[in-house]
Amino acid sequence: MLNTLSKIFCILFFVQTSYAQLIPITENELSDMSGQAFINVDRLQTAKNSSNQTIDTTKITLGLDIKTSVNADLLDLGNYERNGSAGSDIRINDFALGRIDSDGKIVPFEISDPFIELAFDTDATGKENLIGLRLGFGGAKGALSGNIESLTGKINIDIFGKAAPVRASTTWLNRGLLSLAGISDTTILRAGAELVQANGVANPVRATTVGIPNGDNLNCESGCGILTGVALALLGSNNCNVLGIDTCFPIDIYRTLEVGNKQANGSFTEAPGLFLSFLSEKITWEPGTQQAETGAFLNVPNGGLEVDFEQAFNGIERARTKYVDPYYD
């Protein structure tokens, strides 16, 4: 008896010296846990359908900051026969986000607050018919590289710089006319370019060309003569041409595009508006924005895509995107 008691006493005595306990969390404590506001869910009535009627959307936003550097052989979205022609709504070879600088540092592509938004067209019986969705980002900045073979979307490029490359690209006769109009090599001109067909008609569907749409003008910013404004106003772009100067360019010569809001010091901040949508009906997602086309549609925000006239004519050099990069090594 004593033998058994001594063993039990001994075991109990020494067990008492350990203080660690696993204590379950009570329901009350658990119920105090909140969702950290990491997810927002919105029912919105800000989008409009192709008939300009307000439609409902449901938007789920995640509170995330993402920095990345990726490369892909191919991004090919919406590969089907459209209006009788085979092809893809969006097709980009050697696609990359982010770049590597000359010191070997990764300069990541940065995005924040990604969201998915579903668009509904409600019919007379109250059915909410899903007519499309988009994957978007609250903000984005960084280098987007690739050889763009086909693009359905919105890319507005601001062409801004000295007129010398413009003058150099035309005939001596037209150069004389430009001089008469007060446009010298140092005159600063500006023009807005967007996705167009080869004849200059603005068209965001399966575009292979970016340029000044028919009827739009070059604008003089500084160094202008007395007649410059009048002359430029008379010379709208027509069929991708102003005074013998090409105003449309293959989009695949722009190998790296900087997405974001360009600051005065040349740096970039995140810009809202980058999204990719799939739609069966044209939708204007937010007031004051360009209507998104049916099919796959890539919307690149304004503000960062600024090139000078030399870049407009010759393209933008692709940035290094790999440590062993066939475009460099």
Binding site: N40, T61, G63, T68, A72, L74, D76, N79, G98, I106
Partner: peptide, 23 residues
């Protein structure tokens, strides 16, 4: 409304950092 096929091919991630924050 019928958008055929879509592909992302041979995508390699050299760096990815995802951090959450309150909205």
């Amino acid at each position: 409304g019928n958008f055929g096929s879509s592909t992302i091919s041979n995508l390699q991630i050299q760096y990815l950092e995802v951090t959450s924050h309150d909205l």
